[in-house]
Amino acid sequence: MTTSAPEPLLALSNVNTFYGQAQVHFDLSITVARGHIVCLLGGNASGKSTTMKIILGLVKPRSGEVTFDGASLIGLSTPQIVRRGIASVPEARRLFADMSVRENILMGAFVRNDRDAVAQDLDRMLTLFPKLGQRLSQRAGSLSGGEQQMVAMARALMSRPRMIVMDEPTMGLSPLYVDRVLELIRAINQEGVSVFMVEQNASLALEIAHEAYVLQTGKIVLSGSARALKDDPRVRDAYLGGSEAA
């Protein structure tokens, strides 16, 4: 693996976010290197999902900078950010339940206008997710959780993104699907797509990630290479809730 990527693909620097009076992020700084899988770990209410919303422009930070490929994302609308090359797999998948599986996957290509290439990409998704082939005309809402996760990932890939952000991609899945999803994330990454994922399940996430950050009540308390963090007892302590465990 080369480590000669000086400029990160995505960088959050000194981000402070508020919901009304309550501060969610304290000087949050995160970078995602090109071609890497970066994982943001943390317990409930640590500000993980809000970090994703900041990247996607669904929540505006009060201060700080977010750049993608060197250009600022601050002030851009969510659709504009998506057009820059960031796709998302939202928490709980958020499929368009009354649309068919095919329509859901094609919705991922909404920002593209190259019809023929989109059709090819749809075929490519069916080789990547063979199970979806038989389900194409089915209502997306009628699929199982694991199948829905496949659709959500295929949908994200259809925009040919440079980066995918994923919010708890393994949440609520059976163990079999958890492994399958992790495998797929690795496969997607090997095709050159950077991945930023938010996870509660640290041991699983650290298996596939290059780097990881641990978020606790809005502050980064630990960061480093996934390999180093895997054996770090402080990761577990951070989950078990702060000061008394430290």
Partner: peptide, 9 residues
């Protein structure tokens, strides 16, 4: 799903 639609662009 309004938010999800926005995330599709």
């Amino acid at each position: 799903d309004r938010d999800a639609a926005m995330q599709m662009g």
